[in-house]
Amino acid sequence: MSYVADSSASDGEFNRDTDYITTRITADGRDGYPVEAGRYRLVVARACPWANRTIIVRRLLGLEDALSIGFCGPTHDERSWTFDLDPDAVDPVLGIHYLRDAYDKRVPDYPKGVTVPAIVEVETGQVVTNDFAQITLDFSTEWSAHHREGAPQLYPEPLRDEIDEVAQRIYTEVNNGVYRCGFAGSQRAYERAYDRLFTALDWLEDRLADQRYLVGDTITEADVRLFTTLARFDPVYHGHFKCNRSKLSEMPALWAYARDLFQTPGFGDTTDFVQIKQHYYIVHSDINPTGVVPKGPDLSNWLSPHGREALGGRPFGDGTAPGPTREGERVPEAHSAG
């Protein structure tokens, strides 16, 4: 997510800039960056849905020892995400306040949006990649030597075509669809985006009515990609982005599915509702010029029984749940549901 990587077309339709730094970190190092424990730092912001995916996948696969993590604060200015949560507002490993510094080291006067997630090479201080869609796939496929024992198969080879197909529709129509509503520059563009979004949500509601997960009988990359948007739907997108045909809590299958994932280790314990609301309502001053952050909604219902076990499925397949969240990486209790 970025402060300038988004723009609106002349007809008022929101268009996302998808020109990322696509260098990959791979097992064979073919792009010059081999997978190596301790060499890189994953920089995220809990507020950002695209970054939240990487936090979830890193935790599910058990990459904590191989790949350190740095957390930016929930807000930023026109220049960059910043490490406001750290002592003296400086990342303790990279030694920088502005994430832009790591982008400028890779590309002097980096001309595009400073986005999270980003993976930074610690020794050089340079961003290696900010290609969020590829990062999590590579965690599953290229970083396998560093997976924990019992790590789930989030991108199993026999299901990759279906996962890719479902994930692509989720990206265009849901993940980006809420932004297309929120940043529409005309009534016509907004209504068109609104209709596209809820057509896709209705499709997902039908798909999840009789199957526990999106693809196969275990959690996959597709579920991770949908979850981070669903978690933000009622607290932010329903009101702030005018996605208000219905709340998530009024879509029975999707709501039960979202609670099922939220209550699964790796999902709810990486979701910070306070930072999520702070980011959208403070940073998007063109939409919310007062900067007032809403007090609601009540989040305790995220912990209510979901009943999805009756559909079968095994969350982690032949693997196991991740252990407790590491010290220093935990969401404050007051920032979660309950």
Rank of each mutant, 00 (worst) to 15 (best):
I55C: 14
I55H: 01
R58W: 06
R59F: 05
G62T: 05
L67T: 13
I69H: 01
G70H: 13
P74F: 02
T75I: 14
H76L: 09
H76E: 00
R79Y: 10
S80M: 13
T82Y: 03
T82V: 13
F83S: 03
D84F: 00
P87C: 11
V90A: 10
I96S: 03
H97T: 13
H97I: 11
Y98W: 06
Y98R: 12
V107M: 02
Y110S: 05
P111N: 08
P111T: 10
V114E: 08
T115W: 07
V116P: 02
V116R: 00
V116M: 01
V116L: 04
P117L: 01
I119N: 07
E121H: 13
T129V: 08
D131H: 14
A133M: 14
I135P: 00
D138S: 00
F139N: 04
S140W: 01
E142C: 03
E142S: 03
W143M: 03
W143I: 14
S144G: 01
S144C: 12
A145K: 04
A151W: 08
Q153C: 07
L154K: 06
R160N: 07
D161K: 14
D161F: 11
D164S: 02
E165L: 13
E165T: 09
E165W: 10
A167N: 10
Y171T: 15
Y171A: 12
V174D: 02
C181S: 10
A184S: 14
A189H: 11
Y190N: 06
Y190R: 09
R192G: 02
A193T: 07
D195R: 09
D195V: 12
A200L: 02
